[in-house]
Structure formats: C-alpha cells, structure tokens
Design a protein around this nucleic acid. Structure first.
Length: 564
RNA sequence: CGGGGCGUAGCUCAGCCCGGUUAGAGCGCCUGGUUCGGGACCAGGAGGUCGGAGGUUCAAAUCCUCUCGCCCCGACCA
C-alpha cells in the first residue's frame, strides 16, 4: 500500500488519554481511534494486525477439528433467562431498550441452543464449535485502551462431548492449540492453573502475559513454571522455631506505637516475633486474624479457611469488639474466634497488642495462652519467596489474561436441556467445555512486550506489512522511478509492502517507519542508487546493509525467512 | 459506585488563582518557493459557540451551580 493514499494517521505526540505503552503506540501508529470509553475503531493498519491474529487462531482451531460459526450479537433475552445469567451478569449485560434483546457478552447459551435437539446421539460427538465475534460487556471501568473494553473481539469455542474423559481430550486439544497460537504470535506467556474444584471436578487454565497493565496479580517461578494467581499462591518461607523456654506474659507500655515497624523499633525486636492482629467480620461475628510481622492477609484464603464471606471490621467496630483501636489489638483477652497464619503455629515468646490503647504484651505462648486457635495458610506471597514446587524463587507481578480454557461440565446442557442418547439409549446431558481468547489483547500484549523508545517492533507473524519501503526525496525522478519499480515488483512477487512515497523529509519518514515498526525497511536514496544499491534495515536489531538492486528479491526472501 | 485529575485550534499545552481590547504558543494543515540519509527552512494563510446549560456581573475561558465527557486509583470482573 502506498502511504500517500492510505489512512495511517500517525501522531508525533503522546495522546493525553493514553497511559500504557500499547495504548499509546496503537494510537500513535494510527492503528485505532477511540469512539467512546472502552469502544475503539480499528483503522486500516490496526485491522490488518487483527486479521493476522484471527488467521493464526483460525488455523490452529481448524487443526484441532474446530468448525467456525458466525453467531448473532443480538440475543433474545429469554435464552439468557434459561440459565439464570441475566441475573448473574447483572449490570455487565447490555440490554436493548426497545425490544427484549441483550447484547451477547459470551455465547455459551447460543451454542447450547444450537446443539440441543440436534446433537442428539453419542454418534454426533465430539464437536468443537468456535467463532470470532464481537462481545459486549458494560464494564464499569474500561481501561488501558483496547485491553479492557466494553466491546471487544473474542475467539470463543465450545466443546460437546459424551463423557468427562472425552471432555479432557477436547480440553487438552485446546490447551495445545492455545500454546501454539500464542507462540506463533510471538508472545512470552505462561499458564496459570486455576482449578478450584468448586464445580466438581472441573478445571480451568488461564493463559497470561506479564504486564504492568495487568489486572491480575500472579506468582510465577521462572525455573519450574509454577504459576498461580496471588489469591491462591503459596510459597516456602522460614520462620523462627518455638523457643525451648516460654517467658511469662507481661504488659509493656508502648505510647504511640501502632505499626509493626514502630513496635520493632521501640522494643528493638525483629518483626518475626510479632503477631499482627486484624479483625474481620463474618456472619456478624468478629474473627481475630493473626499474621507474623508485616505479612498481609490474603482475604481469599481467609474466606476459604473460615468457610464464609468476610469483611474487614470498621474502625469504630474495633473499639467495641476489643476495647482498643487498630495497632493495639491482640489475642490475649480476645473473646471470639481466633485464626492464625501457619507461620505462627505453636510459637512462643511473641509480641502482640494488649487490647488496650498504647499497650502491648510480650511473652505470649500460643499453646499456653491462646485457646481454641485455628491455623491456616493466610499469607499473601511476595516476590523473592521460595517456590512451593522447586528450589527457586517466586516472582510476583501483574499480568493480563489472554485466554481461558474451562471445563464447563453440564451446567448449560442441564439448564437448557441439551441431552443426548448414549449407547444404551439412556439420556444424558452433553458435557461441555468453553475456551476464549481476547483478540485485541493478543495485539496489545504483543506491543507491550515488543516496543522500544522509537515505536513498535513487529515480528513477521503479526506485522501489518513485512517491508517498509522508503523513497528518499521522491521528487528526484530516478529515486521515484526505482522506488515505484521496487514496490510493483515486490508486491507482484507476493511481498507485503508498505510504500512511503510521500513527499516528506527523510528524517520524518525514518521516524514514522521506526514508529510503525515493520520488520524490514528498504531505503531508496540518490547516493546509493548511483552504485545500484539500496539500504536494508532490520527494525529489531537496527542492523543496516546495502543490497544490490538485482539481488533485492532474493535477499529480502532470505531475510524474511531468517526473521521470526 | 467512592476518591482524585482533566476538558481552550486536528494534537500537545499556556492563559483561569487575582474577571476587563481582537483568546495564545509549538506541532500539524493549506498556498508559493527553497531543501532532501534521521521528525528541514522562508513567506503568506485557514482553523475556536474556551465541553454544555444556567447564574453572578457593566463585563466571564476566568467566579458560582448543575450537567456531560475523558483519564487515573479503588470497588467490581461470567
């Protein structure tokens, strides 16, 4: 395509509303423009990238036997009421005002609708149905450009099987296909197993990419691949052993000492001998939670340990429950349920609050002084702690969810009555799986991982064009003619060429080329042309070298083959 | 939904606190000329209901009220 005739509105300055690199660069390169919060138009260059991702997804989905559908975004509300998801989605679901339709936020119901009464025999399965379609979700807070939008492209597929064993197969096929898709796209990703067992034997995996723009926090071990959402992640940490001799409990006057750090400073002790107190409320009953030192309470783990939902107590409740304010609360004299992190299990000679403002207590022995104490892993893991699976260290960082594969089981087939007859003529619900990939997120994550100060660095797989041809001074007739010839012949030979034939200064064109980031730049200038040479530049490595005109095709082919 | 920030030319922003000729700059855009290997130069030019509505005032981009939009943090996230 000729840049002089193509709509690629590049921006020299950073748009005011963009913060994360992918968002900034997608705007600056003219890939996208915002229409409204969380709603983006893809411009020609951006849409080319989207189509490349879709094609990779399509190839890999087809390779595992997937069949592509195209489903409506406009859905009758009553189908969504069959599974109770109108209520489950709540405000996230867009409702159409003048008819009883909703805008589909995903398509389990619609796929199940097509399967029921049609996929009636065990002989009809397995099936894998997929589509690449726009989804609508009324996100309360769209952010980070295309990463969290109210309207987005999703590849979603659904498997239909006769048994749990067969579901495992469909699930594994997706797992492998997803790894191939993200690898082909050039993404550094990892897989988080999020199996909770909450739905009876179901499992799920999230495909994640490390990113500052991420909305999930994960713990990851580079050496063994252990990865877990920080809500459930565990780690190996050491703590002091129980000391052989327990001191007596004694009260200490600690004026204005509130935090663990202040307490350690005041008493010249280590934080590992401190039991930090937090009060939570569950079913209107207070629970005292004890953590070692500055360890943070992981509320997800706490809920699991307690067995019901919890919330932190309000400041005024603290006084009422314990007689003290935050900073002076402790287990001695506390009337109610006490649960402690495993790090403090059976410890003695600990320091904690006295349930009296400005006082702490030392010499606490959990075995002797704290009756009915429960123990559980309640910590939020932190970077640098030991991996639970190997001897390496964990890293904790934010990440973006690119894809999710999920064993649905019979939730939808049962509620929507999608039954089949097995070999014995017995009726059973279809066993389903559901698998999604955020297409725009793939693009945004690629940019997050592959950019420098000048702009995007595309790989061969996703680049909107492979070659960026630049003519320096197209007013020079020879330069113009040779550039035109190169463009025509390369295009005819099947190369994907973006041709900057604009009448602009060289620096302007070079900077635009680096910003747009095609893998190879071919630069046609007057000086080198005298020797029948043009310059090639590899965007990623900044390598440059001269190529003879009549060798250009073979050299470019060679370069493209060698590039990722 | 809570907290914070912002809305002035296509883009980035100044002016607002302390009201007062014709609302500015840089970049971009248009015309002509020069230039052409890392965001060129000269000359001329177009472009604004200062997000919107109401109010205070002799006078509002500026002060007040309401409203809409966008960004960030939090809550939420099948």
């Amino acid at each position: 395509m000729r840049l002089s005739k193509t709509f690629v509105p590049t921006l020299k300055e950073i748009p005011n509303d963009a913060v994360v690199p992918s968002h900034i660069l997608m705007l600056r390169t003219g890939m996208v423009r915002m229409l409204s919060a969380g709603i983006y138009s893809f411009l020609p260059l951006g849409y080319r990238v989207i189509k490349k991702v879709c094609e990779i997804v399509r190839q890999e989905m087809d390779a595992i036997g997937g069949q592509e559908f195209h489903l409506p975004a406009l859905n009758p509300k009553e189908i969504w009421e069959e599974t109770g998801r109108v209520e489950a989605f709540g405000d996230i679901l867009f409702h159409v005002k003048n008819r009883d339709y909703v805008l589909a936020p995903t398509h389990e119901e619609i796929m199940t609708f097509h399967a029921r009464n049609v996929v009636k025999s065990y002989k009809d399965m397995p099936q894998i149905w997929y589509q690449i379609q726009t989804k609508f979700r009324n996100e309360p807070r769209p952010r980070s450009g295309v990463i969290r939008g109210r309207q987005f492209l999703m590849k979603d597929s659904y498997s239909f099987d006769v048994s749990w064993e067969d579901l495992d197969k469909s699930y594994m096929l997706h797992d492998e296909a997803y790894r191939r898709i993200f690898t082909r796209c050039g993404l550094k990703f990892f897989v988080v197993g999020a199996s909770s067992g909450a739905m009876g034997g179901t499992g799920s995996e999230e495909f994640m990419v490390k990113s500052e723009a991420g909305e999930d926090t994960v713990a990851y071990c580079e050496s063994c691949g252990y990865a877990a959402n920080v809500e459930v992640a565990t780690s190996k940490v050491s703590s002091p052993e129980r000391e052989t001799e327990s001191k007596q409990v004694y009260e200490i006057h600690t004026p204005n000492v509130k935090s663990i750090d202040e307490l350690c400073e005041f008493l010249k002790i280590d934080e590992s001998v401190c039991a930090k107190s937090r009060i939570y409320i569950s079913n209107n009953q207070p629970i005292l939670v004890l953590m070692q030192g500055n360890d943070e309470v992981n509320e997800t783990k706490l809920e699991k340990a307690v067995g019901s939902t919890i919330r932190p107590a309000h400041p005024d409740e603290l006084k009422e429950i314990t007689g003290a304010d935050a900073g002076s609360i402790g287990p001695i004299g506390f009337n109610g349920r006490i649960i402690s992190d495993l790090r403090l299990k059976d410890r003695n000679n600990l320091f904690s609050g006295a349930n009296k403002n400005d006082y702490h207590i030392g010499g606490i022995d959990f075995q002797r002084d704290v009756k009915n104490i429960d123990y559980a892993d309640l910590r939020v893991v932190q970077s640098g702690e030991g991996c639970p699976k190997c001897d390496s260290k964990l890293e904790v960082f934010p990440a973006i969810e690119l894809g999710h594969i999920f064993k649905l089981g019979t939730k939808y087939s049962e509620s929507m009555k999608a039954y089949f007859l097995d070999e014995n003529g017995k009726e059973n619900p279809i066993i389903m799986g559901s698998y999604g990939i955020g297409i725009e997120r793939v693009v945004a994550c690629y940019i997050e991982q592959n950019h420098d100060t000048k702009g995007i660095v595309w790989n061969k797989a996703l680049a909107p064009f492979h070659i960026h041809l630049i003519s320096i001074n197209p007013k020079n007739e020879k330069v113009k003619n040779v550039s035109d010839e190169i463009y025509d012949s390369l295009t005819k030979s099947g190369f994907e060429v973006l041709y900057d034939d604009r009448d602009a200064s060289p620096g302007f064109k070079f900077n635009d080329a680096d910003l747009l980031g095609m893998p190879i730049q071919v630069i046609v200038g007057e000086k080198k042309l005298k020797d029948n040479l043009v310059e090639c530049k590899i965007r990623k490595s900044d390598e440059r070298f001269d190529v003879e005109l009549n060798n250009l095709h073979s050299k470019l082919k060679e370069l493209l083959d060698s590039l990722e």
